[in-house]
Amino acid sequence: MRGETITLIHRTPAGRDPAGGTVWDTREEQVDDVLIQDGGQSNLTDGIRPDGIHIAKTIHMPRAWPYRSLRGAKARIDGVEYTVIGDPRPYTGGLAPTRWNLTVELADTRG
């Protein structure tokens, strides 16, 4: 089994604007051998977004990727940026039988 290449987009605080808000820097990182699993997809049913959709995916990161927090990060897959949900952590303890040790849930809402 072989994964795909995705782009992780990390953001870090770079200072404050004149109004006191946080100014962010972004950094992009290519990650190879990521397994991509489609999740739920649904149409939004509220009256103000009749053409809206919600998409979920799960990615499985390879052990070879040096772990760092993904809180606030995005993952670009096939040109679409998905938001990382929460702050996932790698599997710990014991022997794991695969090359992947971090499950990351992603979501995107459009329309």
Rank of each mutant, 00 (worst) to 15 (best):
G94N: 04
P66N: 06
R11Y: 07
P62E: 01
D78A: 06
A73I: 08
R110F: 07
M61I: 01
L106P: 03
R11S: 09
E29W: 15
D32G: 02
M61Y: 03
G39M: 09
W24I: 01
G3Y: 08
T7H: 00
E4N: 04
D33I: 12
E81T: 05
G21R: 14
T109V: 15
D17H: 06
R63H: 10
M1S: 13
A96R: 15
Q30P: 00
G72Y: 07
L44A: 04
T83Y: 11
K74C: 01
T98W: 10
E81M: 00
P13A: 15
K57Y: 06
V23R: 04
A19Y: 13
A107T: 14
T58N: 12
P50H: 07
T12K: 11
M1G: 10
A107G: 12
T109L: 07
W100G: 01
D78T: 08
I77Y: 03
W24F: 11
G93N: 08
R68C: 05
P66K: 06
A64N: 10
T45E: 09
K74Y: 10
R2Q: 15
M61V: 06
T26H: 15
V84D: 06
T45W: 05
A64G: 11
L106Q: 04
W24K: 00
I6P: 01
H10G: 05
S42D: 12
I59H: 02
T58Y: 03
L102G: 02
L8F: 12
